[in-house]
Design a protein around this nucleic acid. Structure first.
Lengths: 209, 209
DNA sequence: CTCCGTTATGGTGTATACAAAATACGCCGC
DNA sequence: GCGGCGTATTTTGTATACACCATAACGGAG
């Protein structure tokens, strides 16, 4: 429940969590709530300052600048693995997902594209067959979800994303591990670039006011 | 306290943690102990099975096979970053640590070498200046510490490790980011290979019995 | 003698009550 | 009027007590 509230920004980043209030609101006592908070603290979704309370983690631009290059390396590794040892069955599944992406994009359904894109990347990780790689990437994604910025909101980014996915599928079909890795890396870094531009746009429009 | 007991193998992998007993032993009540356990559970050091209890995580060989390639990629990235933007000051610090490694190796002090090696890698991560990279690598290291196997125990591995470190320092001095990344990657993968050989030796000697 | 059901025991999960600490507010002094 | 110190209140941190579930052991029936 807490995670949902944090991701939906009903608990805003930086906000302090009042244990008594939250416990009453959720209809439980403080004990299990505190245990939940400790878990979120260990995951990094909230910051626990001893004797001060618990605060929803704020993701700075610096965090994004640091996380995306790591994601790029890790997801690149995923693509590399998948290209190398994909089964025809897996390829079929990925093709189907990619097709879905194409349809969503054609329909201009950004939210649907985002969701399917998530499933696609997740499926890639499963295909790579490295559970720890999945865990590490999942941990980082958890944090990225704290930010409400979506790179797809940048003009033209959706088309670019789609074309990168097309190139990736081609590399997977050709079992070209090196190309797949490079394409996936650049795909992630392109998202960071898009976020930067969105941030710049926001700064400019704020300056105009 | 729990972490220490787990790392020192006083709480063995697979062992179930009896809350009441542990609480008494540590001189605290169950409430804070449970909060601590929840944190360790979120970190993955213990597994929490609802209504079943808490068990110290066991690291299988498959886990090692999965974790090391990830570490290789991540630490490779660290080396790449450091080679690119190291300051003379940082280089001096790293040189000093490497010198210490050389001395420890010459003295045949395996434990000292291990410890200094840890500090060296940690310092590299600080020099890379990416806090998230540090976090992710730290999370994986936490798990590796569950295993009591040390690759340095393999005959000749210490010398090999030292020579890999020498090559790394050379790449850092030359600001050769590509070489540094490759060397660091191979350095980590070599540790995995050493662990495999140790495991094979153990299997062979078990077979003889 | 074996298998199933019931009961008992131990252990996890939750709630409540209390202690300690930090912050905020108010009062007194300068 | 402003600043500092003390007290009070709020909030975190801890302990204890209780409820529920799971497992295991014992007894009875086939």
């Amino acid at each position: 429940m807490l995670r949902e509230q944090i991701y939906s920004h009903r608990l805003a980043p930086g906000q302090r969590l009042d244990e008594a209030m939250l416990a009453e609101q959720l209809g439980i006592s403080r004990t299990p709530l505190r245990e939940a908070i400790k878990v979120l603290g260990a995951e990094g979704l909230v910051e626990l300052r001893p004797r001060k309370g618990c605060f929803v983690t704020e993701l700075t631009e610096r965090d994004l600048e640091e996380i995306f290059p790591i994601m790029a390396v890790l997801e690149g590794r995923v693509a590399c693995e998948v290209a190398g040892k994909r089964t025809p069955q897996q390829l079929k599944t990925l093709d189907a997902l990619h097709e879905k992406l194409e349809r969503r994009a054609a329909a201009g359904d950004v939210d649907g594209y985002y969701e399917t894109n998530y499933v696609f990347h997740d499926t890639m990780q499963v295909c790579a067959g490295n559970r720890w790689l999945q865990t590490v990437i999942g941990d980082l994604r958890k944090h990225l979800k704290l930010s409400r910025h979506h790179s797809l909101r940048l003009e033209g980014r959706l088309d670019a994303s789609l074309s990168e996915h097309r190139a990736l599928m081609q590399a997977l079909h050709a079992q070209d591990a090196e190309a797949a890795e490079r394409i996936m890396r650049d795909h992630l870094l392109a998202q960071l670039t898009a976020l930067r531009e969105l941030s710049n746009e926001a700064a400019r429009s704020a300056h105009v006011e």
